[in-house]
Design a protein around this nucleic acid. Structure first.
Lengths: 163, 163
DNA sequence: TGTTGACTTAAACACTAGTTTAAGTAGTAG
DNA sequence: CTACTACTTAAACTAGTGTTTAAGTCAACA
């Protein structure tokens, strides 16, 4: 048996967050002791694990509530629960893909600034006689990235040594 | 030159969102025409691209504002801008890692429900004489995952055919 | 010469995801 | 017996991220 405080430290969140989740219907399975305090059972940790995963995956509280609600209905909702997780898997894969694209762009920008810092000015990347970034800059980066075995060498700036 | 509406469709967001960003200090570089309307220049698209990337990476509007503010200060902030993107790269990599962990767990749960659906009941995963998931269930999944070349075969349920 | 559509602002509103506050209960330690 | 700690509730509050509304401006088109 676990108190709300135990669960809070297991999940690494505050007790008020747990009470909030309860109010939103995420914890219909928790029982109470004689004094009205929440008592989490061993098997409740399975729910906690799933809720934690969905939360960390960016699923809104309301949606997690729907899933938990289905769990409480018994074997009749097994297929629906599977289908829900299937959709969630796709959503999460798309999200990871998106993050990877942003990471790629961020690394281009790191290269842009690394080379600017080394040159002492951003203007090395500007088209002649303008304040605009040369349209060929990104292609230049991608070409360097092609025949580069370690992206760190390309985009990481050495720490300037502390005197 | 682009109007606010042009930029909105380029970024795939609403014009009110752009005005909101402007008010939060993300767009100090936009100029206005004689009528007071925002006029985005070609070179502003470089900013838009970075803002869009940071937004999609989950960076709070306020932080993006700080970065843009540094950009307006000229070459003196090049190193600070690099350092900022360096931190952001680390944050984003950690985030992707975290998402990947959640994806792994989600797939375990898909397997759990796939096998339950096939058996017609979740109780196949319960420890004998209890309503608790058997503590060895996850290890069982991981063992199957080990000698499995295609995770789809392990966790995807065939579509039940429409009559 | 309207009137239409895209723009402008400030201010109010909405939604999510909690946190904080105030008032109270219950068990334990000294 | 008192103090302390962890818990309880309802309700108010906050932060972040926009959207909506109301009132107005401006350029172009029939």
């Amino acid at each position: 048996m676990y108190s709300i405080g135990d669960i809070a430290s297991i999940m690494g969140i505050s007790t008020s967050a747990i009470r909030f989740y309860d109010k939103q219907g995420l914890l219909p399975f928790v029982e109470r002791d004689s004094g009205g305090r929440r008592k989490f059972k061993k098997q409740d940790l399975n729910f906690i694990e799933v809720i934690d995963c969905l939360k960390k995956s960016g699923v809104p509280v309301k949606d997690i509530g729907h899933f938990v609600h289905m769990c409480m209905q018994g074997d009749g909702t097994l297929r629906a629960r599977y289908d829900y997780l299937d959709e969630e898997e796709q959503t999460l894969m798309n999200h990871i893909d998106e993050m990877q694209h942003q990471l790629d762009f961020l690394r281009y920008k790191k290269w842009y600034y690394k080379t600017s810092v080394e040159a002492g000015t951003e203007s090395i990347h500007f088209a002649p006689q303008t304040n605009m970034v040369d349209p060929g800059t990104k292609a230049e980066y991608q070409a360097e990235l092609e025949h580069c075995t370690n992206i760190r060498k390309l985009i990481d700036l050495e720490q300037s040594e502390e005197a």
